[in-house]
């Protein structure tokens, strides 16, 4: 492990919102390394800066200070179009609110990142169907988001995130809007993806979700307050 380059390498990252008296330091010097194949959960109370961190990790937002190397590339120096490329090729993002394109079929949603990468339609469709199969929704391919349950929508979103085979799968409270049954569905998908070697970083405020990860990072007031590795004998045995 030590020989491989970390997928994620964050050094002294800070994010400041506002100016003057209303300044809010959402992130205050966060450093974090994530190795390939890791399953990391970030926990923290509301306002601890975990969503801000996630958005920066997903290249959706830019930090005020600090360096962020994604797969060895310093993303803070990239242009807009290069960032688009990074988001498309290196990152798969799963949102709390699913963020599927409305009135568009599940398979078309999953195809979207591939279309932006310039893949041909037939190959795109094949891969999208494969990704939907991975999350167990191949039979719902032609359904539109509003015809799917919350858990199914989130699994479509996961399929969309992993269809480009990104180096990093980021999930921002993926189970935040789901009931316990749907939560289990989605977490099972994450477990399976971890088992085949994907790097996963997820944010949660639910203890039982965080407990399934290999490594648990807790944020408090924009700083890393604890970083522990967890054993999962139970899960690996299962």
């Amino acid at each position: 492990m030590a020989s491989t380059r970390p997928v994620l390498d964050v050094r002294d990252l800070s994010k400041v919102y506002g100016a003057g008296e209303t300044t809010v330091r959402a992130l205050d010097g966060v450093s974090l390394q994530v190795e390939r194949g890791a399953y990391l959960a970030i926990m923290g109370s509301s306002g601890s800066g975990k969503s801000t961190l996630m958005n920066i990790l997903g290249c959706l937002d830019i930090p005020t200070h600090g360096r962020y190397l994604l797969d060895g590339v310093d993303v803070s120096r990239l242009t807009d179009s290069q960032l688009a490329l990074v988001r498309n090729r290196l990152i798969g993002f799963v949102f709390q609110a699913f963020n599927l394109i409305p009135r568009t079929s599940a398979v078309a949603n999953v195809e979207l990142p591939l279309a932006y990468s310039g893949m041909r339609a037939a190959e795109r469709r094949r891969r999208a169907m494969f990704a939907l199969d991975v999350v167990g929704l191949a039979d719902r391919a032609e359904h539109e988001p509003n015809q799917l349950s919350g858990g199914q929508q989130q699994r479509v979103a996961v399929a969309r995130a992993l269809v480009t085979e990104p180096a990093l799968l980021l999930a921002d409270e993926p189970t935040g809007n789901l009931d316990s049954h749907s939560t289990e569905e989605v977490l099972t998908v994450f477990d399976d993806l971890h088992a085949v070697g994907r790097t996963i970083v997820l944010i949660t405020h639910e203890e039982e979700v965080g407990a399934r990860a290999d490594r648990l990072v807790k944020l408090f007031d924009g700083r890393v307050s604890s970083d522990v590795r967890q054993d999962h004998l139970g899960r690996h045995a299962a």
């Binding site: 179009s81 498309n88 963020n99 990142p113 932006y116």
Partner: peptide, 16 residues
Amino acid sequence: TREIGIRKALGAPRRV
């Protein structure tokens, strides 16, 4: 605008 945000998050270049 939200849809544009989603598309950009998925790696859509501005031009597209």
